[in-house]
């Protein structure tokens, strides 16, 4: 699973982190930190996190 976040779009709102805290977190400067290689079992949660993003900054490629 390859997760890409468009930094130009990401607004640091953390809606993704509420849905999939195992994978997404915000640092102190509201910058998004993505876990490098999330477990396959988290694919559903990652997809839900991408949908929760108000600006659709997250894209996921299945590998």
């Amino acid at each position: 699973m390859k997760i890409t976040v468009d930094d130009g779009l990401c607004d640091g709102l953390g809606q993704c982190a509420l849905v999939a805290p195992e994978v997404f977190a915000l640092d102190d400067d509201e910058r998004l930190v993505v876990a490098p290689e999330p477990a396959r079992e988290l694919a559903g949660k990652v997809a839900a996190a991408a949908r929760a993003c108000p600006v659709r900054a997250i894209s996921v490629e299945e590998s």
């Binding site: 779009l9 607004d11 640091g12 509201e30 949908r51 993003c53 108000p54 600006v55 659709r56």
Partner: peptide, 18 residues
């Protein structure tokens, strides 16, 4: 709904960023 929603939201989000 998305995609129209996200598209419009991107246009204004900078004005409400930190």
């Amino acid at each position: 709904d998305d995609p129209g929603h996200a598209r419009n939201r991107r246009l204004v989000s900078a004005a409400f960023a930190s």
